[in-house]
Amino acid sequence: MASITDCVSEGLKYPLNDVKKLLILGVFFTISNIILFGIFEENLHVFRVLALVKGTLSFRFSQIPPNDIYIIAALTVISFIISLIILGYQYIVIKFSIDANNNLPEFGDIANLLVNGLKYFAVSLIYNIIPTIVLIAGVELIQDVDYIMSIISFILFLICNFLLIMALANMIDSNEFKKAFDLKEITDKISKLGWVKYISIILFTIIIYGIIMLALGIILMFISMFIAVAINQAMIIASILLIIDGLFIMPYISVFFNKVYGSIYREAIKNA
């Protein structure tokens, strides 16, 4: 590999190797999108009911119609399970990428996907907890200088998420959960690749992502304009956009990112 940016172009090509599997992943994304949309709708309904209860500014749980709460809870659980499946798929994408396997993973073993997704989710959550705590503490406790705390927590977010990429790959490669928190090994692997190279390749990936999303946004804007001319219904336009987004764009982007993460890790251990 002549240049590290080849990782990115490889990542952009990789999801197109097997469009059928990408579309299956897209179906999961679409379901989750629609459920989130539904939750949003139900929330609106709840707020509408709350607004109708006059005279009381205090929030009382009993005022919310119980049916809506049950629906929201059920939908949240379902969407969480679906997102776990998606994360589990991303886990296997990283694994395939580390093994330099150019096929897209199968959807055969849903239980396995769920377990892997849980691992992926847990690691991401744990890495993001410290900056979140700092942010909340900054906003809540220190009233006057909260912008300093937000800057600190922003920097912490950046550092943690930069480390998170390597941590995920490290965990997936060794297939051990605790390897994700072996900071010494992770930083060793990054310094083998070179910190500047590591950060610049991630920034480059994000720039490419930004350009693609901007271009897709322009195209989607045109599509929605055409639909708006034909059907004068905001809900329908929103649902069509959600379906396009979930079916084609989100699976492509997520597989692209995870392929690149895996490739970066592969480059790092290759240099050793």
């Binding site: 172009s9 952009l12 480059f204």
Partner: peptide
């Protein structure tokens, strides 16, 4: 096309 796109982004950066 993909490689071309990536190279183009590199040049612009």
């Amino acid at each position: 096309i993909v490689d071309m796109f990536i190279d183009g982004v590199k040049v612009v950066i």
